[in-house]
Write a protein that binds this DNA or RNA. Structure first.
Lengths: 238, 238
DNA sequence: ACCTGAACACCGTTCAAGT
DNA sequence: ACCTGAACACCGTTCAAGT
């Protein structure tokens, strides 16, 4: 469409042949930069210096792009978690698991749209299974029965990957403080309890925030509460 | 477009004037019946016996339809929770909260697509705030400080509304059993721990299932573990 | 084998026109 | 005031044609 000039700035090397890998990495980069809605086949093709229809030689369709994007993120997690230094699970399963989960979380902090995409996937990729297998290994080494390990996975849910579905998901513009301020003014009579709670102290932690209700501190509080509950049940031999 | 005949089967009463309410209810019905992707402005218009462009007199755009759809679901939850019979929070806050959460869950079991939509919303509707206010009221009555109530909300996350984000989200066709069978055959060497776990006993509960990893039993196990952990911290006076 | 232009059947949304 | 037809600028995807 546009005449191919020497300056094809958007692509690193227009000459590198297309590949599934390159398409998926470009998709992640595009979403990181311009948001989930910006991912269209035409935009993605432009990103790799090709036409939209060329993508279909490497991915079946757009759904497959989303599947692949999730795969890329999960692989990033597995690499990061592989480098974690932590006590051995035999020694302290809680510390071992905690360290891995908090490391996985860092990946989601770099790709905050990823939880949303992950939730739309209906097929479980082998990469998730590999990650879960590692978690089960830790729990087993820590003395869990298979049955309790299974339950532990359910209790952790997405927290095992480092993020939690929350009730508020305000975007950047609508910060905790802003939301609180609006509430106090307008809604003190309608929502007395929540207004009281927010008035009591709105804390913030912009760096580690995945949204108003998923900051680093709260994530760790919840994680520790759950790990403690699981350890209690393990010790009770259930 | 199609000539308007006497038999306009899809609409209950073609004569009732359009309203925001009617549009949103139709949207929920459409998604319940044909899935999230089936919601288009043209399909939705057809559902209420009008043209697509007429919808724009009652909703700003498609995003607003999704906002409204979430609102409808949350209102359904608030109505259901309002009818719950449970001990008073002063008497037994855990039982009071547990009963409400399990009731909210029933609404999501009727609209299994709702969690996915909820997660895409960036603005917090007053209806969610109202629901959360009730939860805070229960916690306060149970002896929670505002600060611990705040943390409790974070720990519960979406579980406060009755659903949990899980790692597997297989669709109906790909049941737990099917997934387990595939795994055992192909992946025993790659994923020894998880295969062992699944071999140890795949249980099922088709009626209460929100996905492989969110059946009723597991949901209640996780909820109780969390409530217990919160009560422990409350009693410790944190 | 890999890539592409043109085309198809859809989208959400705008706008001027109807009643 | 409420509704609509035609049109616009996009989509994902197919297909036949290029190298």
């Amino acid at each position: 469409m546009t005449p191919r000039t020497d300056a094809d700035e958007l692509t690193e090397q227009p000459r590198i042949p297309l590949s599934r890998r390159r398409v998926l990495r470009a998709a992640v980069g595009l979403i990181d930069r311009d948001g989930l809605d910006s991912l269209t086949m035409r935009r993605l093709a432009q990103e790799v210096g090709a036409e939209a229809m060329s993508l279909y030689h490497h991915v079946a369709n757009k759904e497959a792009v989303f599947d692949g994007v999730v795969e890329v993120i999960l692989e990033e997690i597995i690499v990061a978690v592989g480098k974690v230094e932590a006590p051995s699970p035999q020694e302290d399963w809680q510390a071992a698991l905690r360290a891995r989960i908090l490391t996985a979380r860092e990946v989601f902090l770099r790709h905050r749209w990823a939880p949303q995409v992950l939730q739309t996937r209906t097929t479980t990729s082998p990469v998730v299974i590999a990650y879960i297998d590692q978690i089960v290994a830790i729990l087993r080494a820590g003395g869990f029965s298979f049955d309790l390990a299974h339950r532990a996975l359910h209790v952790l849910g997405s927290r095992a990957l480092g993020f939690s579905q929350e009730l508020f998901q305000p975007d950047g513009a609508q910060s905790a403080d802003a939301a609180a301020a609006v509430m106090m003014e307008q809604m003190a009579d309608r929502f007395p309890n929540i207004v009281g709670m927010l008035a009591d102290g709105v804390h913030e932690d912009p760096a580690g925030t995945l949204g108003f209700c998923d900051d680093q501190f709260e994530f760790e509080f919840a994680l520790d509460l759950i790990l403690e509950g699981l350890e209690r049940r393990r010790a009770a031999g259930s």
